[in-house]
């Protein structure tokens, strides 16, 4: 162990494969753009919500939530249906879901990458993370 040990540029092990580097450099800005698009949809949903509801709606909802009553539990099918029908509140909730899923999609791409590279230890790690996310959603539904 030494402080700032220096090596020649040639190493026995490469730091990242070309595919790993591509995941980082291509997907990361792409994810940011997706998040910006979703954020814009949420913003538009918010503007429509404010335009179509009475002025007191937001304040009323805000105070109900302050009191600890959130009540946002719908099935995914109900939520998607009402979003497709154009309900701005549901569009915003779906937007928040998509926003959350975006970085998780990158894990799915890594999973596919490691399958392609036949790097089975990492296929296992990424599969575990994906399974954990699905388990978390189920746990949220039950809990």
């Amino acid at each position: 162990m030494s402080k700032s040990a220096e090596h020649s540029p040639k190493f026995e092990h490469t730091a990242q494969s070309a595919d790993e580097d591509r995941i980082l450099r291509v997907w990361t800005p792409l994810l940011l753009r997706t998040i910006l698009v979703v954020a814009t949809i949420i913003l538009l949903g918010g503007l429509v919500l404010m335009g179509t509801h009475s002025p007191g709606f937001y304040a009323q909802r805000y105070h109900i939530i302050q009191g600890g009553h959130v009540h946002e539990k719908q099935t995914f099918v109900e939520l998607l249906q009402s979003a497709v029908e154009g309900d701005p509140h549901s569009v915003m909730t779906v937007g928040l879901f998509v926003l959350t899923l975006v970085p998780l999609a990158r894990v799915a791409f890594c999973f596919l990458l490691f399958i392609k590279e036949r790097d089975f230890a990492y296929v296992g790690f990424t599969a575990y993370v994906l399974a954990g996310l699905v388990f978390g959603m189920l746990l949220g539904r039950i809990g």
């Binding site: 959130v70 009540h71 928040l96 978390g136 949220g140």
Partner: peptide
């Protein structure tokens, strides 16, 4: 995701 699935995220 756990919070969203549980309905604990207040959208507004």
């Amino acid at each position: 995701l756990v919070f969203l699935a549980r309905g604990d995220v207040a959208t507004v």
